[in-house]
Design a protein around this nucleic acid. Structure first.
Length: 545
RNA sequence: GGGGGCAUAACUCAGUUGGUAGAGUAGUUGGCUUUUAACCAAUGAGUCCCAGGUUCGAGUCCUGGUGCCCUCACCA
């Protein structure tokens, strides 16, 4: 569940483990000061071999001996984008242009060489001819390697075979690459290595770079939907003294000066609703959240959750807005076809994302698949036994939790989507407003697509006394995934009056998976969590922030 | 945590019934002024994931471990 709801009775009651006490390896090249890592042991582990290729080092030394700076501070100005030059080659033939980029291909002929240069926009071929270049610059060719970053200034034109080409008058080295790039035809193929060395994956696999650009565009498209509606984008704390707003086990960290344990946020919800109280009536945050749970193709310990809240709206309004956001994201991801249909292909199945999406009541879906009303306790009990689901504890909360486990076991696998499931049992929705005409049910929906839960939304509970009772109920439940204690400040905020509001959370990474056609969450995360590399630098993913 | 699969050169991959390790790319040296996975010739490069075991002999067979992928469980 993205934001709130039930936890499973099968969840192990263990609390998050303390960080490993294994000595943290060092990254020597980034270790600039002696205060780099005061908390880490001072005993340095064996230094890994630097990944510098001997032949490239040798050429580097030769270049330096020739007076060439292999890492100049500045690049020639007036650079053009490779793709723009290729597109305009016939209008601009004979004009001079400059391109900076990485050498991705090289075909040499003695007194002439062709280079394929890649920049952010695409690729263009450069032609280096001995009788056209200064001798010292042509000599660079002899010490050039695939992967080097260079600059070419030359005349735009086509070769005999019609290839758009920059015929070089100037050729400069901008940065020498000391590590070998992967095989030029297959690129980097191993999924783990691709994630560990995403920088290599990105420059050697065009479709990977394009995928992450599309991810960025679909997020930007959602941001624009909010801004067009007068929403305000905010940043709320990541370090929480009390974790809440979802059911999940948190990561624990410690503030030294305050001698205080803090939790990395599992959801930004309670802070965002404080902002509703404060009068920021339409608010959203692309929030990185952290949950101390297992890894899988659909789970990463940190992930991006979009949460948004709108005063004077409700869950029905959030449903319309969610639909709009998904469609905007899908268009930005390039899924709209000429006939106006929007199709996503995910795990071998096609999903039509043309609105409106189906809306299905929880109780109806339950009755249809389980074969009885969720209110028929005798028959539900029979079904629970059939599915070996236990009711852990007595009272309404335990009962409804089991009912929802049954729902998740029987109904959810059938929800390929896109579909909204609405009106959940109120007992398992501590942050949602009960329906006025039947408080058994809460004004809450979840959105399913590609067999995954992508969104979770409520008409937000704003009755401070009821909210306090629900919090106390949760804490008394001693659920390791529930809140550790009552957030009294949040109750105080509600006591000041929160406008009626709709709120929603969307799992951005999972949405990106469906829209970009990636089976694994790792393929849509730039630096997914990985175990520390054996004998390597120990950097599991990105350098620490 | 359970089950299945994989691990060989910087990269992509072969490796036969167990017999002293192979190709392509990348690199190095030489040749080549219109190629585009350029081409031709020569050439360096491996802790066959780790540790045991069986065997005269293990990349190959066995046991244990590590990592990754798939799957189940947990979870969003």
């Amino acid at each position: 569940m993205l934001r709130s709801g039930v936890r499973s009775p099968l969840a192990p009651p263990s609390f998050p483990a303390r960080p490993s006490s294994r000595p943290a390896p060092r990254r020597p090249s980034l270790c600039r000061g002696r205060f780099f890592s005061p908390l880490r042991p001072s005993r340095p582990p064996a230094m890994p071999e630097p990944p510098f290729h001997p032949d490239r080092l040798e050429k580097l030394e030769e270049l330096i001996a020739l007076g060439v700076d292999p890492y100049p501070a500045r690049s020639p100005a007036d650079r053009a984008a490779a793709a723009d030059l290729v597109a305009a080659v016939d209008d601009r033939t004979g004009q001079t242009a400059t391109v900076h980029g990485r050498v991705m291909g090289r075909r040499g002929y003695g007194k002439l060489a062709f280079l394929d240069l890649a920049d952010r926009s695409g690729r263009i071929q450069a032609c280096l001819q001995k009788d056209r270049l200064p001798a010292a610059e042509f000599a660079l060719l002899k010490r050039l390697h695939l992967g080097d970053i260079v600059s070419v200034t030359g005349e735009l034109g086509r070769t005999r075979t019609g290839e758009p080409t920059l015929f070089a008058d100037r050729f400069r080295l901008l940065a020498k690459a000391l590590a070998q790039p992967p095989e030029k035809w297959h690129g980097l193929a191993d999924a783990e290595l691709r994630a560990r060395r995403r920088y290599v994956d990105l420059f050697s696999n065009d479709e990977v770079r394009e995928r992450f650009l599309r991810r960025s565009r679909l997020i930007q498209a959602m941001r624009e939907v909010f801004l067009a509606r007068g929403y305000t984008e905010v940043e709320t704390p990541v370090l929480h003294p009390i974790y809440g707003g979802a059911n999940a086990r948190p990561f624990v960290t410690h503030h030294n000066a305050l001698d205080l344990d803090l939790y990395l946020r599992i959801a930004p919800e309670l802070y965002l609703k404080r902002l509703l109280v404060g009068g920021i009536e339409r608010v959203f945050e692309f929030a990185r959240v952290f949950r101390n749970e297992g890894l899988s193709p659909r789970h990463n310990p940190e992930f991006t959750m979009l949460e948004f809240y709108e005063a004077y709206s409700d869950y029905a309004g959030m449903m319309d807005l969610t639909e709009e956001l998904v469609v905007a994201a899908a268009r930005a991801a390039g899924l709209e076809r000429e006939d106006g249909s929007i199709q996503a292909t995910f795990r071998g199945r096609e999903y039509s994302l043309r609105p409106p999406f189906r809306r299905l009541h929880y109780a109806e879906a339950f009755a249809e698949r389980v074969g009885c009303s969720p209110l028929d306790r005798v028959r539900v009990q029979e079904r629970l036994r059939e599915h070996e689901i236990e009711v852990t504890g007595d009272g309404e909360l335990a009962w409804w939790r089991a009912v929802n486990d049954l729902f998740e076991a029987v109904v959810e696998p059938e929800l390929s989507g896109p579909v909204f499931v609405l009106d959940y049992p109120a007992a398992i929705c501590p942050l949602a407003k009960p329906k006025a005409d039947d408080p058994t049910w809460a004004e809450r929906f979840e959105f399913f697509l590609g067999g995954m839960e992508l969104a979770n939304a409520f008409s937000e509970l704003n009755d401070p006394r009821l909210q306090l009772a629900r919090f106390e109920e949760q804490v008394a439940d001693k659920d390791p995934e529930g809140p550790n204690r009552v957030d009294h400040d949040y109750i105080r905020a509600l006591a000041h009056g929160m406008p009626p509001a709709g709120g929603c959370g969307i799992g951005v990474d999972r949405l990106a998976m469906v829209l970009l056609g990636c089976d694994s969450i790792r393929e849509v995360l730039l630096f997914p969590h990985l175990r520390p590399e054996r004998g390597g630098t120990g950097d599991a993913a990105a350098p620490p922030a």
